[in-house]
Simulated scan of single mutants.
Amino acid sequence: MPETLTPRLEIRKLEREFHGHPVVNRVSLSIDPGECVCLLGPSGCGKSTTLRMIAGVEVPDGGEILLDGRVICGPGIFTEPEKRSIGLMFQDFALFPHLTVAENVAFGLKGSKAEKRLRVTELLARVDMAGYDNAFPHELSGGEQQRIALARALAPRPKVMLMDEPFSGLDNRLRDGIRDDTLALLKEEGTAVLMVTHEPEEAMRMADRIVLMRDGQIVQSGAPYHVYNAPVDKAAAAFFSDINVLKGTVRGATTETPFGSFFAPGVPDGTEVEIVIRPQHLKIDFDRGGKGPAPTPEHGVPARGKVRRARYLGRESLVEFDMEFDGSRLQAVIPGVFLPEEGQPLWLMMRRDRCHVFPVAQPLAS
């Protein structure tokens, strides 16, 4: 049998309550060396609290935290934060303003002066900040401060790096490059990374695996492609992009819509469902004498709408439609420039392999 690798970081059924309200509710996940996992979710879903418990600055109400298979936090066990070999990076960088760049990076390092100096020089070169040893944080740009914060966090060679919205304070022009450089360096070091973000694009760009949280629980976990293209429910789909929603009722494992029939396998008859499709997966065709394009297995039945508004967004165009069948509003995203006039009739067709059918969520009983 192949050898089973021990995760670098593992949390088991982690719990935390505030004033009797569960903020983190039995959360479990593991991260391997060199893997980047993103905790993604709306504000208040428990992401940062999970991170703080792993760091040791918040004490769990239940569950365990393991590092290389050794329990560092659990019933009767609590390892102090400075002894966990876990690095931290936050959005405010947290550099010491009265220390030079070299002193900031060396802060917390152990060993002789020569050993510290060698490690500082090595890291400054690796984050493209060689020669800035004697500069002070206020003399650096935001991107440069981010690089110094990364070097300082990596200096003691942590086994795990925790990152809480570390790039949110950066200019958009700098963000992508610094994110890529940071991730490459962390992987080169073999560091397990757990990053908190509320930005789906950032998670898609950086993560080997996305863990989607909601109301203190993990609702979906997987590779970015899987989480985006196979959402577990409507809310998961909507978190990554705008969505269009059609409503229907299941009869004989299908639901009828103006765009044709959609399969709903395993859903009981009479169940109300929502059919979700992203704007970029709608196909537009011009009205040809009112007849429209012929139905196809790929796109189903065409339905006609009138252009409500069209906007050019740079790389793509967003076109909003008022649909003739019920007055509902749908959006389509078209690559490049496409700006039809207001009121122009156009036919819409749906990429059926990109549609998702979900039972309508029932309200919780009071």
Results as ranks from 00 to 15, higher is better:
9 L>T: 12
332 A>C: 15
227 V>L: 07
318 L>D: 11
250 V>T: 01
15 E>I: 11
269 D>Y: 11
204 M>H: 10
291 K>D: 09
226 H>W: 04
361 A>H: 09
24 V>W: 03
110 K>N: 10
314 G>E: 12
353 D>H: 12
336 G>A: 08
164 D>M: 11
332 A>S: 14
204 M>R: 12
313 L>D: 08
8 R>H: 02
192 A>P: 04
338 F>R: 11
313 L>M: 15
345 P>N: 12
164 D>C: 11
96 F>M: 12
56 G>T: 05
87 G>Q: 07
253 A>H: 10
183 L>A: 10
247 K>E: 13
48 S>C: 01
232 V>S: 11
211 V>S: 00
14 L>T: 07
111 G>N: 01
38 C>E: 02
8 R>N: 04
54 I>G: 04
152 R>M: 07
142 G>H: 08
266 G>R: 01
138 H>M: 09
281 H>G: 09
277 I>M: 05
270 G>Q: 02
123 L>T: 08
244 N>G: 09
168 S>G: 14
132 Y>T: 15
159 K>M: 11
214 R>N: 13
50 T>G: 06
181 D>M: 13
267 V>R: 02
262 F>A: 03
355 C>Y: 04
32 D>K: 15
341 E>C: 04
106 A>S: 13
27 V>N: 03
290 G>K: 12
312 Y>H: 15
95 L>V: 06
272 E>F: 06
129 M>R: 09
167 F>W: 10
238 A>H: 05
190 G>R: 08
190 G>A: 10
342 E>W: 00
257 T>E: 06
49 T>P: 01
352 R>F: 05
138 H>S: 10
141 S>L: 04
164 D>A: 03
